[in-house]
């Protein structure tokens, strides 16, 4: 029982860490395309780890599957939203930052 609790807490903490990384990426990355990477990858991994941690402590099988379902739903919706935003930005002619980038070298 204790062991399960430890694993669960570790997963939830890891999830929170990736949420933080996603927010930081959102604030620090240079253009909309790279920010999209931060939102879709870091946040979904954060939610996935968080859901996995809570699944270990779920009270029943259906509750556990429901947590997995919520994560899958979030994955599908954010992948679709990511494609839509990236595609529209490209069509609207928002220029992506290309080539080597370091946050110090450009304002």
């Amino acid at each position: 029982m204790m062991f399960e609790e430890w694993i669960s807490s570790a997963l939830v903490c890891a999830g929170a860490f990736f949420y933080l990384a996603g927010t930081l990426g959102m604030l620090r990355f240079p253009d909309i395309y790279t920010r999209l990477h931060a939102v879709t990858k870091a946040d979904n991994l954060g939610l996935g780890l968080l859901a996995a941690g809570l699944m270990l402590r779920a009270e029943s099988w259906p509750a556990m599957i429901k947590l997995a379902l919520i994560w899958m739903l979030a994955l599908v919706t954010s992948a679709t939203a990511c494609y839509l935003v990236a595609n529209n930005a490209l069509r609207a002619g928002l220029p992506p930052v290309l080539g080597r980038y370091r946050s110090g070298s450009r304002p």
């Binding site: 860490f17 990426g25 620090r28 395309y33 990477h37 991994l45």
Partner: peptide, 24 residues
């Protein structure tokens, strides 16, 4: 792969200089 992807983005976001080399 998605674990790898999350770690990759997290590394770039937490790095002091956010190193990247975007391309299409």
């Amino acid at each position: 792969q998605s674990l790898h992807g999350g770690i990759d983005v997290a590394w770039r976001a937490l790095h002091r200089q956010t190193p990247m080399n975007p391309a299409l």
